[in-house]
Design a protein around this nucleic acid. Structure first.
Length: 541
RNA sequence: GCCCCCGUAGCUCAGCUGGACAGAGCGUGGGACUUCUAAUCCCGUGGUCGCAGGUUCGAAUCCUGCCGGGGGCGCCA
């Protein structure tokens, strides 16, 4: 059952050997033995630095200590291990027989679409809130980063054993709604929007669809929401709940929250306004909850919303915000604490800005000025898969430059083709095999030990990494690590496909069967990875 | 002024809890299609990992300072 059985075997043996040597500062559990996959194949399949790490505090020479360990480990006669060597300043390297990788195929095939799934999350209930664009315009190319990231993160967290919810918070009240409605009304009447209004071309287009006599605010609200939902759906992004700010007004949740905060003694009245003493919780200044004119600031409904999230049993809140909102993190953290929660119960992931370029110069995204690249245009031009993979290529910590000309060009500079091609090729094997009357035998009867070609081993090595990649991506909230892995697997598949023919008459039947199952496990792996990214895996291209 | 993110090959970016000569794609130069899709594969080219200190047996990775770039510091959302 343990996915990392080889690693566990080695770790346990190392821990045991260390115990026999009798050293200070030993790892308390085998899992703490540092074991890594060396980048250099000359350094074996696995390597540990324990001799280096423990030498100094035990007054030992690292290489001598390593030698002692090697002696004990060799005597243990570990499964799959062909050679144990000391290298460099005191690394202990393990060289394994390919058999350790052959097991992987059976595992992947047995687990299928569940391969790589982890129980790491332990069922902890995590609510991911993302996009949350104002209902005053279309989602645009800038929203796509948060949308794809939040959705992929949710998928990764689910796969890693968390119970996950996805929500979109709708700021459906406040001044921006009125500005939007006024702009719509003006365009509908054939006039320019008022000072400070929305100048975007979409306002005119939408206004032309507004029925005679409709309330611009209500009609505009519903229309914008429907548009956002439709376009995000086209990007394969769905939410469990669209949470309306207005609903909290209707239910009195905002007032209730304010009373709650008063009861907790964290608010005070000052200068005619109501303040949250957020400085008590690390914010750099106190924040106004109710303005002196009696209106709520945006903050109070936000607090009420987060209070609501917790009240529904969510244990960890992950908010995906754009870089322009990072300044609000301390006050939201303070707000969460003022409600009696741990500040770590709220995590805010800041996605850095996307710079869009076309013909080498920047394309600005501004709703007010109207120079907008809508998400829909992007999807229409390149497809949802390319949009998703492009945005999921790199860490959201890094500013991203997206060259619209390139992803529109559908050239080989777009990695989505590379990855989907690998999948299509694997599928074509099955297709052609059927045409030619080849039959794949049950895996149990196939001898996988004939898989010794470097191309074959490379595919198995990459497949082996997926469980660790899933856990890492979940722990670090970094779904782009899955993207990197998928690209690596696709690369290994292309090499394998090129050098290891399956249906060729020159391929011995025994080898054909083994390779065929390897191809099948690679196909499963690609599909799992692509599913985590929300990218489709077409069978043919 | 204070806070956050980034600064790795000509370009766009990976680099897991520090590890053994720094990677990928694109670009560029040269090869491979009577054989399961050449949207592929192979070989070559290309880097003072922003700079300077520090911690460490060992730093692209951790700490400090500085220099660049981006974003933010409202009784606006």
């Amino acid at each position: 059952m343990p996915v990392d059985s080889v690693e566990n075997t080695i770790r346990t043996a190392v821990a045991t050997a260390l115990g026999e040597v009798g050293l200070e500062g030993l790892p308390s559990r085998p899992a703490e033995v540092h074991l890594e996959r060396p980048a250099n194949p000359d350094h074996g399949d696995f390597s540990t630095n324990v001799a280096l790490a423990l030498a100094k505090r035990n007054g030992r020479n690292p290489r001598e200590l390593a030698a002692e360990l090697v002696g004990l480990l060799e005597a243990a006669d570990l499964a799959h291990v062909e050679g144990i060597e000391i290298a460099g300043p005191g690394f202990v390297n393990f060289r394994l027989a390919p058999t350790w990788l052959h097991e992987r195929i059976g595992l992947v095939v047995a687990e299928g679409s569940g391969y790589g799934r982890s129980g790491m999350g332990g069922g902890r209930r995590v609510l991911v809130e993302f996009v949350s664009a104002n209902p005053t315009g279309p989602v645009h190319a800038g929203h796509a980063r948060g949308a794809t990231y939040g959705d992929a993160l949710a998928r990764v967290l689910e796969f890693a054993g968390f119970e996950v919810g996805r929500e979109f918070y709708i700021n459906d009240r406040g001044v921006q709604m009125k500005t939007y409605a006024d702009s719509l009304a003006a365009r509908a009447a054939g006039e320019d929007p008022p000072e400070g209004g929305y100048m975007g071309a979409y306002i005119s287009e939408w206004a032309s669809e507004m029925p005679e006599g409709a309330d611009p605010l209500e009609w505009g609200y519903e229309f914008a929401l429907a548009e956002q939902r439709r376009v995000l759906g086209a990007l394969n992004v769905e939410f469990d709940r669209w949470f309306s700010e207005r609903d909290m007004v209707a239910t009195g949740a905002i007032e209730t929250t304010l009373e709650d905060l008063r009861d907790r003694g964290v608010v005070e009245d000052r200068d005619g306004a109501v303040w949250l003493r957020s400085t008590d919780y690390g914010d750099d200044k106190d924040r106004v909850l109710v303005k002196s004119d009696g209106e709520f600031t945006y903050l109070l409904p936000d607090i009420a919303y987060h209070r609501d999230k917790f009240s529904r049993g969510w244990q960890l809140l992950v908010n995906v915000w754009g870089a322009d909102h990072h300044g609000y993190v301390p006050r939201m953290k303070a707000a969460v604490q003022s409600l009696g929660h741990d500040p770590d119960d709220l995590e805010v992931v800041i996605t850095q800005l996307v710079r869009l370029e076309r013909e080498g110069s920047e394309v600005k995204i501004s709703k007010r000025s109207g120079d907008l690249v809508t998400l829909e245009e992007l999807i229409d031009e390149v497809g949802a898969d390319a949009v998703r993979l492009t945005y999921l290529l790199q860490s959201v910590d890094s500013p991203q430059t997206v060259d619209l000309d390139l992803i529109v060009a559908q050239s080989n500079e777009n990695p989505v083709f590379y990855v989907q091609m690998a999948n299509a090729r694997l599928n074509s094997i099955d297709r052609v095999a059927t045409e030619r009357g080849f039959e794949r035998l049950p895996l149990a009867g196939v001898d996988l030990s004939v898989l010794t070609h470097e191309r074959e081993l490379a595919v198995m090595r990459v497949l082996h990494e997926l469980p660790a990649v899933v856990e890492l991506a979940a722990r670090e909230r970094a779904p782009h690590k899955v993207t990197t892995w998928v690209r690596e697997l696709a690369g290994a598949v292309h090499g394998f496909y090129h050098d290891c023919p399956i249906l060729s008459p020159d391929t011995p039947e025994e080898l054909r069967q083994a390779r065929w199952w390897l191809a099948e496990s690679a196909r499963i792996g690609l599909r799992v990875g692509l599913d985590l990214l929300g990218v489709s895996a077409p069978e043919a291209m």
